[in-house]
Amino acid sequence: MIAFFKKRPYIFFLLPGFILYTIFVIYPIFAAINISFFEWNGISEKVFVGLGNYIELFTNPELMSQMTNALGHSFTLFVLTVLLQIPIQIIMAYMIYIKSKGKNFFQVAIFSPQFISTPIIVFIFTLLFDGNIGLFNRILELIGLGHLTRSWLGIPELGIYIVWIMITWAGIGVGMVYFIGAMKMISFDEIESAYLEGAGVWRRLYYIVLPQIKTTILNLVLAAYIFGMTIFDFSYILGGISGGINRNVDVMSLFFYRMAFGDQNPLGGRVNENSMGMGTTIAVVLFLMLFIVAIFQISLMYRKEEE
């Protein structure tokens, strides 16, 4: 017995996390997945319907069109994050890493929106960009561009992009902190010798730093994917439960939330007949979409490492 563990010391390292995580994270998920096989509104008796909810989700044209719309927006957020946000994060992190003047200020200022609660952020942006009382429009008027004034946050055709900008503004610091951490792990000697060889600041980033933080980039791409699929609060606050005008800011987890807990509004409304059943079904579909990509990404990463 002792020999068994001696041979496998990792078990000791894994065990505490494994036990807690399994009880409080994994078990509830599987208990919840069970609900997707029932027709249930959360209050009355559950009725077993097997795969009925899944068939319904993929054959009902209304549900399907809502899902593809939300999925499209979630993908938009993911793509924008990978193509724009991650490069910006790397550059920001690099600027702090090479000890630019003002690095402390940068880091704190970039990260600080994290700590402000979302409704307040949205409210402050309203104070700045509203059509009637917004500061930005006031400035436009003062510099003679009064004809351009708009309610910037609400321009319907920009819906999901405004969501992305606000998410990015509030959340860009997280990835940046990871990049700084990763850059700090790079051996100093390498950078130094490159510098002595005359490599400029961007060449060092490209040839030395980037290859070293490749895994972090890959990880954050996966995180961005998970994030895009599970982001909720900005869309909810900007567009309400229905996901905005013509659902222009709808995203996957808002779609899930609308189905599962939809009619919770001050005017009352109805308990939807199969809200929990269908809501959970959507969550499971979302889960599978994330799960498959995660497996794919992780095996890709290990294959690379083994090479």
């Binding site: 998920i29 809501g279 889960f287």
Partner: peptide, 19 residues
């Protein structure tokens, strides 16, 4: 590794009753 990622993939509201 994948197992430990699952926690990010499922809305917590749904799993709350068993906890």
């Amino acid at each position: 590794r994948v197992y430990f990622l699952i926690g990010l993939m499922f809305p917590a509201q749904l799993g709350i009753v068993p906890i």
